[in-house]
Amino acid sequence: MKKETEHKPGKKYGMVIDLDKCTGCGSCMAACMAENNVPCKDDESNKLSSITWIRVYRLTNRKPFPETEICYLPRPCMHCGGVGDQGHSPCVSVCPATATDYDHGTGIVSQIYTRCFGCRYCMAACPYHARYFNWWDPVWPGDLKKTLSPNVSPRMRGVVEKCSFCFHRYQLAMEKAYVEGRRDLEEGEYQTACTQACPSGAITFGDLDNPDHAVAKMKEHPNAFRLLERLQTNPKVYYISSREWVRRAGDNYLKNEPTNSKPRAAAHHG
């Protein structure tokens, strides 16, 4: 029997979203829901209880018409690695039942819905509102049940869920690779549903640490930024915007601070 003891350096899957390309169409949200068996309630207009793993926010420069500018910003789970990518993401560390953890092999914040007992502490911890609580049991009336994909298990009420970077697609790609005797994936073999669906091609997905992957180069773009970097959450989702006000809206700054101010070097908790 072959023992799988060899440890290869882990991958770091991440996303680069070009906000200059995003039209705000919402395809990513719909694609995500269809891919991940996210249910629809009769009324989803209360966005505070509406589950959309990736959510498109509408940012404005807060200037009066017609100087107003709008930027649409899709926000999946950031899959925060925490300081030094050690897995100290805001949500993982607080889960009392170890129902969510940081996968050092892929850099993905993974979770067990059936372990979660719904304390919602992780939601309180996540500044991105990326985690959603199932206030209701999911319902697919009539034949809509037929649209359910067997790749993702439907979640019951009372548990928290969030974007998984379509991890089941990684699993399926790996299965294929295993059967073919490989252990590594090509860039195109594992792509998230939102990446695929985006009509603008605004989303790029891949291994941030692999120089052959497009994301590795894109994240070095001078206009690249991440949301709330100053909190040292170390997200794996990068954004690119040519507009300064958008980049500034990505983080909080004191009045006279320049955009891109980093947090002070103080030792961080944990």
């Binding site: 560390s93 607080v94 889960c95 009392p96 039942a97 170890t98 129902a99 372990r115 979660c116 007992f117 719904g118 304390c119 919602r120 502490y121 609580f133 199932n134 019951m156 009420r157 009372g158 548990v159 928290v160």
Partner: peptide, 21 residues
Amino acid sequence: DIGQPLRGWFIFWHANVHSML
């Protein structure tokens, strides 16, 4: 307050020692 009261005991059984909760 917890979403899944019947799983409440997971906090003891699957305890995450890093969590304040």
